[in-house]
Structure formats: C-alpha cells, structure tokens
Amino acid sequence: MKLRLAHLYPDHMNLYGDRGNVLCLQARCRWRGIDLEVVRLGLGDPFNAAAYDLVFIGGGPDREQVRVAQDLTEVKGRALKEAVEAGVALLAVCGGYQLLGHHYRPAAGPDLPGLGVFDAYTEHPGPAAKRCIGNLVAQRNGMMLVGFENHGGRTYLGPGSTPLATVERGFGNNGRDRTEGACYRNAFGTYLHGSFLPKNHRFTDHLLGIALERRGVRDLLTPLDDTLEERAQVAARKLALEPRKRFPWSDQM
C-alpha cells in the first residue's frame, strides 16, 4: 500500500520542529507496512488536487509568510481547496493554519489574504502585544492534545468552521474563547507544535485513518505499541499544569 503526502513549502515553513510531524507520519506508516511517499512542494510548484492522500503545511517566520500567502492564493490555492472539498486529510500548524483562514493581519503592514479553507481570520494585536507562548493542553471529545504554542496572531472562528479542541491550559486560538484550532471537512488547523503529531498519536492515527478510508483500506490501521507516546503525552500535560514559579537568577545556576 502506498500513500502520498504533499509537504507544502518545506524550505520556507519549517519552524519549531515541524519536520517531526512528517517523520511521525512516515514512521507510523512504515511500522504498518504502508509506504508513505513525501512530495516536497515549494514556491511556484503546482498542486495536483487528485495526487495526494495527505497534505501538511508548517509554520514560518513573518518574512516568509508574505511569499507563501501569495503562492497559496495564486499558484496552489484553487487545486488545494478542491482537494479539501474532496476530503483530503490536511494538517496546518501555526503560520500555515493562519494562512488557510480568510486573512492574516500582521503586527505591521498590509493584510495578507488567506485561502479561506477555514472560516476564520487572524489578527496580530500589534508589536506591543505579548505573544502567546507556552505549553498548551486541549481536549477534543475525550482525546487529549498537548504541545507548545508560540504565536503573535489571534485567530477567531466563524460559523463555517468548528474548533479542533477546547483549551485546558494555554492560549489556543486567541486566549479568550478557549477554542484551539479549526476543522473543516478533513482539514485541521492548530497552534500546537512540539512537534504536534508524535505526542498526539491518536490524532495522527485519526489523520492516517481518514487517508486509508478514502482508499478503502482502513483495516491497514493496525494497533502499535504506543507506550512511549502515552508516557510523553501524560508527562507533557503534567508539566503544562505545573504552577509557574521562577526566580530571575535561577536559570543561571
């Protein structure tokens, strides 16, 4: 069995260990005897809507977001939206998530138009505003999600998207309404990295399950030994819930 993953803008959108998400998908396929081919698509490369089972886009620095936003809307946008409507499994993290909303308003400069996959928009409250940084724990219908968030923009969802999860600790989309991430069909956006997928193996298998189901081979999603994943997730939640206690000199000793 062979699946194909489109990794969008791996040279430009690769902050915060986003590569770990791709490594994780590859390994969990390999351990099940599934061959996952990763196709790297950069600026200017066309996107073929029918060619992929999975799509991943990571986060990037502000400088790169301008060019990526332009490429998304002008080069890949139409086919990518078509693929989402057809049910492709898509994961967008942080900056990639922001660019799949209607628009991103940066701390300074003009708005960047987004692709509008999610009914959502993101606005940076300005250079003086604090970034949303720290451990994040959220609950998705009984499925725990853990990771680390680091974003200046605040994302607000419209009625056409549902939140990915409810924040237990951290900021999530905007630090106000306790929502984290967005879902539309089989497309998921999130601020969680860490990397996101390795410690959230149930969600990873949910994505793979979608891709396999569309090929009619869901039974290939065999159980794996997830002892370490489980342990890392529980430990991450415990650390996230730990009260913050810090002395200014403690980090030097």
Binding site: G17, D18, R19, G20, N135, N150, G194, S195
Partner: peptide, 8 residues
C-alpha cells in the same frame, strides 16, 4: 521551554 527543536 519549547523542546520542539529536538525534532530538527
């Protein structure tokens, strides 16, 4: 505080 870097 962000340990994501180990994945790079």
């Amino acid at each position: 505080e962000d340990i994501s870097w180990i994945w790079d």
